[in-house]
Write a protein that binds this DNA or RNA. Structure first.
Length: 423
RNA sequence: GGAGAAAUGGCAGAGUGGUCGAAUGCGGCAGUCUUGAAAACUGUUGAGGGUCACACCUCCGGGGGUUCGAAUCCCUCUUUCUCCGCCA
């Protein structure tokens, strides 16, 4: 959520920055400023009335104590009117505050200066690539064929149990997936991240805290009877562990990693690009979350990028890094780097990680602050990144490591798998 | 699921209608002392809104109510603890 206090002073900055996302926010910002003004002025009037009535109350108290009952009762009469007007003013103030909140919820984060202008994924900027795309033999198969051939994943079985997009992993397929989870968590904890296991269902407040609500209401599975949401990413429960906290400077940075399944309704996305493991309703992911001092957040973002690079390098998968353009940037993000693995058999790139700095956007919603060395309470910066999204890494491994006889296992995973070849 | 008890500042813990944003202890910060540290002593120390700065306003789990006045009384929700039941 954007900061009203800052919008008051730098409206032009916000108009310009949001234009990068293709949003003309000037009307909304004007409305925000109007409502903000309205809120503050009615609050001011309310405060005056309350102040007056407080002092009457004190006086009445004293009069009763000194036995001047009649005087006290006379004074009581004077409070009647004040009470009425304080009710009205309070309603006014609450209305304005509520309206302001709703308006602020509609605006996405402002992009960092590095974010290129653009409307969709075609305008993203490739900033790095590494790894050789293997030359596959004639007749190389896409991962869903391989999964079937070697009996690693059963998509139909998932349809029977639940529906499309909920595959069943079997045998070495399941083991390889578990190996990846352990490997990622080991890499992350070795880099200093604290491993956490968190709830997979979150309440509404958590959804608002990290910005999934109200923006992406329809993307999450909602459990109606208990009013809980299945998490679309571990970012939600992990970041919300710190909701409302006032941290000490010395607590920063806080770094966590966690493995969770992720659930996404993916309403309205069908077709060739969702085949196999490309897009699922339930998938596994290991996530990184960082709570940082604002002065350090971009350095931390670079550090996360390097960390994920290291993992892909060890897996020897061909990948590239994109800096997302304004039009493709997530609602809450100020700067995002997407990692994509090349899927040789599909001849296309698959997004397997997204590393973002949200600056104060989430912190403002979460009311997550820290006491800086100057004694002032400030909003932290929150960041997160995947390391990594499992099924697509699996897809990349199956396709890029396939041979005529079977599938080789990347060297770093062999100790985790207990086998080095699938045939 | 049933029966009871409770929820107060970073933590512990007083406070049952007015002078309580809240005793006390611990912790934190600053200082005195010390070669330095510890101990001891002194002072200071919640958050948000508002203001140029004050003033002022709000907040004692959430919401609502009674009252001139609520941490304190009433209703309701949530959570925690104890006992019983059930159970991976």
């Amino acid at each position: 959520m954007l900061l009203v206090t800052d919008i008051r002073e730098n409206k032009e900055k916000y108009i310009k920055a949001l234009a990068k996302r293709g949003i003309d926010a000037s009307a909304t910002l004007d409305e925000i400023l109007n409502v903000d003004e309205e809120r503050r002025s009615s609050q001011g009037k309310l405060d005056e009335v309350l102040s007056q009535s407080n002092s009457y109350s004190k006086e009445i108290g004293k009069l009763f104590q000194s036995g001047e009952t009649q005087k006290a009762n006379e004074l009581k009469e004077k409070t009647v009117e004040l009470k009425e007007s304080s009710k009205q003013l309070n309603d006014q103030m609450m209305n304005a505050a509520e309206k302001l909140q709703q308006l602020l919820y509609t605006l996405p984060n402002i992009p960092n200066d590095l974010v290129p202008a653009g409307t969709d994924e075609n305008d993203n900027e490739e900033i790095f690539s590494e790894g050789e795309v293997p030359k596959l033999a004639e007749g190389a198969l896409p991962h869903w064929e391989l999964a079937k051939k070697y009996d690693l994943i059963d998509f139909e079985l998932g349809v029977k149990i639940t529906g499309a997009g909920f595959p069943v992993f079997k045998g070495k397929g399941a083991r390889l997936q578990r190996a990846l989870i352990s490997y990622f968590l080991d890499k992350n904890t070795a880099a200093g991240y604290t491993e956490v296991q968190v709830p997979l269902l979150v309440n509404e407040a958590s959804g608002y805290g990290t910005g999934q609500l109200p923006d992406k209401e329809g993307q999450m599975y909602h459990v109606g009877v208990d009013d809980l949401y299945l998490i679309p990413t571990a970012e939600v429960p992990i970041t919300n562990m710190f909701r409302g906290d006032l941290l000490n400077n010395s607590d920063l940075p806080i770094t966590c990693t966690g493995f969770t399944p992720c659930f996404r309704r993916e309403a309205g996305s069908y077709g060739a690009h969702v085949r196999g493991l490309n897009r699922l309703h339930q998938f596994d992911k290991v996530e990184l979350v960082r709570i940082e001092h604002p002065d350090n957040s971009y350095k931390a973002l670079d550090g996360m990028v390097e960390h994920v690079k290291g993992i892909l390098r060890e897996l020897k998968l061909p990948y590239r890094i994109l800096r997302l353009c304004g039009g493709d940037l997530g609602f809450t993000s100020a700067l995002t780097y997407d990692f994509e693995v090349f899927s040789t058999a599909q001849d296309r790139w698959l997004e397997i990680s997204s590393v973002s700095n949200f600056e104060t956007f989430q912190a403002n919603r979460l009311k997550l602050r820290f006491k800086d060395t100057d004694g002032k309470n400030k909003l932290v910066h929150t960041l997160n990144g995947s390391s990594l999204a499992l099924p697509r890494v699996l897809a990349g491994i199956l396709e890029n490591y396939q041979t005529e006889d079977g599938i080789k296992i990347p060297e770093v995973l062999v100790p985790y798998c207990g086998f080095d070849f699938i045939k």
